[in-house]
Structure formats: C-alpha cells, structure tokens
Design a protein around this nucleic acid. Structure first.
Lengths: 117, 117
DNA sequence: TTTTATATGTGTCAATGCTATGTATATTTT
DNA sequence: AAAATATACATAGCATTGACACATATAAAA
C-alpha cells in the first residue's frame, strides 16, 4: 500500500478536494470561459497531474445551480458539442470570500500541527 | 445569511475539517495523552473557537480502529469516568505522512487560486 | 480495423461533519 | 432547595460529494 488510503476509506486528497474543487474550477474560469473537458485538462496540466477530479460535470452543475457560473448554449466545434462555462459576479464574490475562509482556517490548522499551545 | 453555507449544504469549514480533523486530534495527542472532553476543550481553546468538532467521539473510534491511537481503561476522576487516548507509533507515522501530503496539495491548490498558468 | 482522444453524461458507493438527542454526575447560580 | 450549567461519554439520522464504473458519440491516429 503506497498511498494514504484505507481499504474502504477515502484518501486525504479526496477530502481536501471535496472542500476545494469548486474553488479550483472558479479560479480557472476567472481567467476565461472554458468547456468541461478543457477545465479537466487544465487542472491536470497546471497541477502536473497532482490535482484532478475523476468526474467534473456534477461540480459544474452544482456551481450553476448555486448561480456561481453560467453556461452558454453548446456550440459544435469539429463535429463535437461544447458547452462553455463562465464565472458570474456571485461566483467571483463566493470565490473571494471562501478563499479568505481557507486562509483563516489553514492558519488555525497549521497552529495545531505545529504543536501550538 | 452571514456564513458561507447553503440552505441544505455544508460550509467550506465542514469539508476542510473532514480532511483535517484526524490530523488535529493526532497533533494534540502527540503532546500528551488526553481524554475526549479534554481534546474538544483544547481544540476550542487553541483555535479560539475557530476550529471545533461538533461530535468528537466517532473521530476517536475511527482513529483507534485504524490503530493510530490507543485508549486506556477508563478511570474515575471526581465521580466521572474518563478514557484517556494516546498516539501510537503508526499514528505518528500517519500524521507525518499526511501532513506532508497536506503541504504538497496546498501548494498545488494555492497555485490554482493565484491564477497559475 | 482498432485504438486513442475528444466531449458530455448518469448511477451507486463510501465517508463523515452536523444537528438533535440521551444518560449520568458535579458544580455553580438563583 | 431548585434550577441551570459544566463535565463526560454516547448514538441516530441527514446531507454532501469524490471515486469508480459505465454509457453515448464523433474525430483522429495507429
């Protein structure tokens, strides 16, 4: 067993992604609108394969339901349908707030692991 | 609505704790053996109320099942039963490995939110 | 022809923090 | 004395979501 995963459990990375994957998607869409497959590929490329999501689409649907991203009508490129997603102003606000929250809680967490008294 | 939580959903902090709560408990037990209520109180004290776990005991039972902590026979103090928990060598190893993993994945994540290309 | 890449989609499982509630004793407040 | 709060441990059910497996369809490469 070379990874930090139990027989039945999830790895630390999976739980970390549970918390952070919407922020990663919003951060990518902040640079420019992208379609699903492109977002997956970008996550893989930028992280050098260290941060990928097995199934991205449910993340996109949730972000859209929450009003944090918009989707365009799908357009055909090289015979394949693409749906482009873009961040909304609510999404930008949520991203900013939640990144702040991330910084605050990591500060506390790092106090714990440093053995703060 | 003042917190970053949906009507039906969990907050960012809850997901972050899902990933990190075992590491917090192990970090505390690395300093000295403690009983459950004491661990809760220490988390509250050290974090100034910013990092608490609503129900700690399941976390302790899981860590024990995984062999990362040991429990002593409960002793009576002031008429109340206390069960002391202590970290095992496997727990120390797991803590070290997973904190390493934490540092690696936060580095990647922070690249995303900084807009890394 | 077969394989790989592109592009989107769904169903089920497993894990765990949260809320709510329960039991029991000790201490403090009213 | 009674009520409220603190101490100490415990369980039940809910909601969320990454991983795995699988499905559909077209294009390009081997």
């Amino acid at each position: 067993m070379t990874d930090n995963k139990n027989d039945t459990g999830h790895s630390f990375a999976a739980y970390f992604k549970r918390a952070t994957s919407p922020l990663v998607v919003l951060s990518l869409l902040k640079k420019q609108p992208m379609y699903g497959y492109e977002i997956s590929a970008e996550m893989d490329r930028i992280s050098n394969g260290r941060y990928t999501i097995a199934v991205l689409y449910p993340v996109l649907y949730r972000l859209q339901e929450q009003g944090y991203i918009d989707s365009s009508a799908s357009e055909i490129v090289d015979g394949r349908a693409r749906t482009y997603y873009s961040i909304t102003s609510e999404g930008s606000e949520y991203l900013e707030c939640t990144v702040d929250e991330y910084h605050k809680i990591t500060e506390v967490f790092e106090g714990f692991i440093r053995g703060k008294k």
